[in-house]
Design a protein around this nucleic acid. Sequence first.
DNA 1: CTCTTGACTGAGG
DNA 2: GCCTCAGCCAAGA
Length: 111
Amino acid sequence: MQTKTLNFFDKVYDTAKLIPYGRVTSYWAIATYLGATRSARMVGYALNGSVAKNVPAHRVVNRKGLLTGKQHFEGTNLMQQLLESEGVIIIDNQIQDFETVFWNPLKELQQ
DNA sequence: CTCTTGACTGAGG
DNA sequence: GCCTCAGCCAAGA
């Protein structure tokens, strides 16, 4: 795997696609996995076009487990509904048992 | 090249 | 515990 060939955005897409069913991760986790802990904003910025990339962006939330990006989906509760369909409990746009459903690429991928 | 924007995070009040 | 400010970094105008 080339580190320079893949753009930051592409890495975000690739990592997001690796998120297993029923699990979620955070922008910070992806950013850290990519070696850009301080570029968590870029992750969300990249996911702006994730829908076209066929990337499960609904599994990516902020560090609080809050669905901050749901506003960017088709309208409103689509993101929440998708997660709930995967067994993730969400109350008031916030993921319940966030630590339980949290998927850490750093630990799972061990890279 | 400079300025603005942003699906964020951490620290401080 | 909530609100606000500042830092960070990449892409677009």
